[in-house]
Design a binder for these strands. Structure first.
Lengths: 139, 139
DNA sequence: AAATTTTTTGTAACAATGTTGCAAAGATAA
DNA sequence: TTATCTTTGCAACATTGTTACAAAAAATTT
């Protein structure tokens, strides 16, 4: 679990520490589902809350993960798939929150559609969150 | 300020109280811009925090206002324009957050575009938040 | 490999947001 | 006006998030 994690950390110019390896591994284990700070806290009890906050911030800055602001006011984080790099995110996909299982996932293949805004509005970034029942829960 | 507010409260089967009239009037004064709980707290210092939370909840339940979850994790509320009623919201418009002035507004005339989801996803509600520079700040 | 520098971590302390239970106050209905 | 029902304020608490600072660990230099 730590091998690939440490290489990713190195190749993104981050110090390789146990905390970062553990947190990054959690994201790889989850793949699609997004993680809340509290999820990580529960699974890695040895880590301090503040360390987790700071690690999530660093990972975000480096383009490894991206934040997803949920309707419940809780921020989740998910792995970036594509071409995100330090300071430049390109996560223009839709997010889906399942009201049954509570999981949030990236629909990487579903692009956010274009929107026509009245002039005088400068768009910098668009977020699209769909609430409903996910593929696993709808049966 | 209290006259129309009290009538709206009555016609929505709510007890008419000073708190509710004051809070509702704030929304009418603001019109487009959304209000955070903290905004209301600052402007109506006589009211208890909890009362404001509960009033926002009731107004939301009754279809008077709708919550907007911001990228900053703070929930804002704005007046419902159309055909929202008790338990049934129809606020399918885009929200805009200005990164300069910090205001969030409803773009009531901009509908949320349709999205094609892979089968097995049941869509119940879609939120679209655009971050950028608003019409007042872009010059 | 040891010493130095730099970065990260844990702790404490704090701020903001949000929720619940309960008694007092206020609004509505009789 | 009285009785009933609803709302309010208060207290207490939970969760989320931030900052400062010293200790620990990682990276770099010698």
């Amino acid at each position: 679990m730590s091998e690939s994690a440490s290489e990713i950390l190195k190749s993104n110019n981050m110090s390789v520490t146990a905390s970062r390896q553990q947190i990054l591994s959690l994201f790889f284990d989850k793949d699609r589902g997004a993680l809340r700070h509290s999820d990580i806290e529960k699974q890695l009890e040895n880590l301090d809350r503040v360390t987790i906050y700071r690690t999530l911030q660093v990972f975000t800055d480096k383009g490894l993960i991206h934040p997803i602001s949920g309707s419940d006011g809780v921020t989740r984080y998910a792995l970036c798939k594509g071409n995100c790099s330090e300071g430049h995110h390109h996560d223009n996909h839709v997010h889906f929150y399942c009201q049954k299982c509570g999981e949030t996932q990236c629909l990487n293949e579903v692009q956010i559609p274009k929107v026509d805004l009245p002039g005088m509005f400068a768009v910098r970034n668009i977020e699209m969150l769909i609430n409903g029942i996910c593929q696993h829960c709808s049966n």
